[in-house]
Design a protein around this nucleic acid. Structure first.
Length: 427
RNA sequence: GCCCGGGUAGUGUAGCGGCCCAUCAUGAAGCCCUGUCGAGGCUUCGACUCGGGUUCAAAUCCCGACCCGGGCGCCA
């Protein structure tokens, strides 16, 4: 057996117990007559102590010769020891070196020396060995788990839609073209059209968590060319209803992380507070007033920042000009120049946008044409509206932005294992 | 794509015309040390992104390329 216990499963009360631990050699401290080896596994650090007179000399020499970050499995006895970190240590009876690490290491795992993000991403496998980085991805896992539980409890079914598509789903953004046998195809920019088709299909409430691809040459700390989108679509509801689902979901993500990720939040030095619902609803008109902008334009960065600073917590921007939003967004009947769209904002940036969708085939067709798009490319989508499409609404939420704002990280790349941007395609 | 800033040992840095066969930390190799916990002490090793130019002299100034960071734009 290579492992019986993770580090955090051992306590001083296990004094005398035989255990097998396994992981990486975090560091060794050789004091001459006594040598300490700190082993690191996913859960934390364990001190292995080798007093020269009490352990086999062969073992003593093996341990002194192990390079940092080598992979080992160590059998030994737990010893209660006040002088040790966590008040226990392991006195080894056997040390197996399972894999030797080369030296020098591409970056420092112990946290003594900084590394640039670029250096870290080049050696991401080693970067993620650092506890503070690993904590981010453990939290990411809990966020996803919480979201799935929340949506499941709210009656949503998880679906998977194609990522290889024939046409631009929404227009607007640039797509990555790919070769599909003899034809041109694209990587999907959004599951939008497919999740709407599922409303016609009668699945009633669906969600998808998956990658979306945008071929924009943006070069910022909050954009990537491949990100994870959390998308929902629900029938027989209004945009107000899905806004409420969205704010409750954000609330539940925060409280879920606070509950399940105490250890990770400690490592990151964060004290999270669950945002209070309902979030403030700010109209588009109020937002552009704060930013001194012309009516009809999408909010620029400066306005987004100014409004964020003024409000200081999560909020919605509602009642957008119809022309700033995609063709499938439903205009207000009495004021068609504005529409039933909303953006969920964190003070730092946009997290989500959604809307009440058009469910009338004829109106949808008119809107597609009005935006200068060719309806032929949307045939497969429009068909679903001809034979019984219920009223529906939905949103898409950027997982990475939710995470980076929650964890107060300044670069979206921090929350993605292997980020894809204009310059980085590897690893 | 535009505007700034930057590229120095494996990693993070100091130096910004001669005082530099380049500073400090970390690391690696070796030695000393029985309670370390960013262990300590001593010795050694390891770098100026590339190409052109200016100058008696270039890590340092200029030009170009490549790469990185920040801001903006683009991105509903």
């Amino acid at each position: 057996m290579l492992r019986t216990h993770y580090s955090r499963e051992i306590t001083p009360d296990d004094d005398g117990k035989k255990v097998v631990i396994a992981g990486w050699v975090h560091e060794t401290r050789d004091l001459g007559g006594i040598t300490f080896l700190v082993l690191r596994d996913r859960e934390g650090l364990v001190q292995v102590t080798l007093p020269k007179k009490k352990v086999d000399e062969k073992l003593f020499n093996i341990v002194r010769g192990i390079s940092r970050e080598s992979v080992v499995s160590i059998s030994g006895f737990v010893k209660r020891e006040d002088k040790a970190p966590n008040n226990y240590e392991i006195i080894p009876s056997d040390v197996q070196v399972l894999n030797n690490a080369d030296s020098p290491l591409p970056l420092d795992v112990t946290g003594k020396v900084n590394a640039d993000l670029d250096t870290r991403l080049d050696s991401r496998f080693m970067d993620i060995r650092r506890q503070s980085i690993q904590a981010i991805f453990v939290i990411r896992h809990h966020v996803l788990k919480t979201i799935r539980t929340f949506l499941d409890n709210s009656g949503f079914k998880e679906i998977n839609t194609p990522k290889i598509v024939a046409t631009a789903t929404e227009g607007g953004t640039e797509l990555f073209p790919i070769t599909y046998f003899e034809r041109e195809a694209f990587l999907s920019q959004s599951p939008q059209l497919y999740k709407q088709i599922m409303m016609s299909a009668g699945l009633d409430r669906v969600y998808e968590i998956g990658p979306i691809f945008r071929a924009e040459e943006h070069d910022t700390t909050k954009h990537l060319n491949e990100v994870s989108s959390i998308d929902i679509e629900a029938s027989f509801v209004t945009h107000e209803d899905v806004m409420s689902i969205l704010e409750l979901l954000v609330e539940s993500v925060y409280s879920g992380v606070i509950k399940s990720c105490k250890h990770e939040l400690d490592i990151l030095g964060l004290q999270l507070r669950t945002p209070k619902v309902p979030f403030k609803r700010l109209s588009y008109d109020e937002a552009i007033d704060i930013g001194n902008m012309e009516w009809g334009d999408d909010l620029d960065t400066a306005t987004e920042k100014a409004v964020g600073e003024k409000i200081g917590k999560h909020y919605f921007i509602v009642d957008w000009p119809t022309e700033t939003k995609p063709y499938y967004t439903e205009p207000y009947e009495d004021r068609p120049e504005i529409c039933k769209a909303f953006d969920l904002m964190h003070p730092r940036m946009e997290l989500s946008s959604g809307a009440q969708r058009i469910h009338s085939h004829d109106l949808l067709l008119k809107r597609i044409e009005a935006q200068g798009l060719n309806p032929d490319g949307f045939e497969f989508y429009l068909r679903a509206f001809k034979y019984g499409m219920p009223p529906h609404a939905g949103w898409g939420l950027g997982l990475e932005r939710l995470l980076m704002t929650m964890l107060d990280l300044n670069n979206i790349r921090e929350v993605v294992l292997f980020p894809r941007d204009q310059h980085r395609l590897s690893p």
